[in-house]
């Protein structure tokens, strides 16, 4: 599997990371190197093996559906790059 610059651009878009046009060939080359390393996995016979979901056989704990936290608006907003009137502010999303 070889990654071309169009695929590299698509991956960057999916990852929401701006990559300049000029940087795409080098990025595609890096992807190919790393994916080439990963390709070794194709040598392994994985027939009948379930994909691992948890290293320890455990059932995630459950708790009652109670409110255990909240009412901390100031703290939640304290690190926001732009907070106004008790909300996170972002550039206009809809026209």
């Amino acid at each position: 599997m070889s990654i071309d610059t169009a695929t590299a651009a698509r991956v960057a878009k999916l990852a929401r990371i701006k990559v300049e046009e000029a940087a795409l060939p080098a990025l595609a080359e890096e992807f190919n190197m790393i994916l080439g390393f990963i390709e070794q996995l194709n040598e392994v016979d994985v027939e009948g093996v379930e994909p691992m979901t948890s290293v320890t056989p455990q059932r995630l704990k459950r708790r009652k559906d109670d409110v255990t936290d909240g009412d901390q608006q100031d703290k939640v907003l304290s690190n926001a790059p732009d907070a106004r009137e008790g909300f996170f502010a972002v550039p206009k999303v809809v026209e």
Partner: peptide
């Protein structure tokens, strides 16, 4: 091809 295969290898 990648993620599920890697998780299978992890099980092994």
């Amino acid at each position: 091809a990648y993620y599920n295969r890697a998780r299978r290898v992890r099980a092994l």
